[in-house]
Design a binder for these strands. Structure first.
Length: 157
DNA sequence: GCCAACGTTGGC
DNA sequence: GCCAACGTTGGC
């Protein structure tokens, strides 16, 4: 299986990369995804060992703040079955789960985040899903070229 | 806080 | 199946 790359969005007020770093074994269940396109990535494509950019949205500045790795591939999202969870979905049947989670583990937090405006300024990233107009997908595929171009931006810091 | 873009819901 | 209304996302 070829290496795959992803970008996971999170609002830092809800779950930040610092939260991930502090989590037991620096690992967390990525739950609460309630969008079908993102769900399909989680259930079918995101594989153990895949590399993940951790992105902070809805904050100033929006930025890629670090890297994580997929520790466990798609499995039914437990929060959908938990009536106490804000992500509870009574329509999700444990026999035929509607929603999926993966586990991710912290790899590194950047000393300096790569901001959205810096990403926009890199011509190599023109096609990146994140930079498309109106794009709000919370689980996004990242191409190998895009991944490498962003890693190169870190080295220039 | 504003608002454009997008996704979902539900009446018909 | 259409589409208006509504809710959410997320940059600014």
């Amino acid at each position: 299986m070829a290496k795959q790359y992803w970008l996971f969005k999170s609002e830092p007020g809800t779950f930040s990369i610092t939260d991930l770093e502090k989590a037991p074994d620096k690992t967390t269940c990525w739950d609460g995804v309630r969008n079908y396109q993102a769900r399909n990535f989680l259930s079918k494509q995101v594989a153990s060992g895949d590399h993940v950019f951790f992105y902070h949205s809805n904050t100033e500045p929006p930025a890629i703040v670090g890297i994580a790795q997929v520790a466990k591939a798609g499995y039914p999202d437990p929060s959908a079955f938990n009536p106490k969870s804000k992500y509870f979905d009574e329509k999700s049947d444990p026999e035929d789960p509607a929603w999926y989670s993966v586990d991710i583990k912290h790899v590194k937090t950047f000393k300096r985040p790569v901001t959205l405006s810096e990403l926009r300024g890199n011509a190599k990233l023109k096609g990146m899903v994140l930079l498309q107009k109106g794009s709000r997908l919370s689980i996004q595929p990242v191409s190998e070229k895009e991944w490498k171009a962003i890693i190169d931006m870190l080295k220039q810091n």
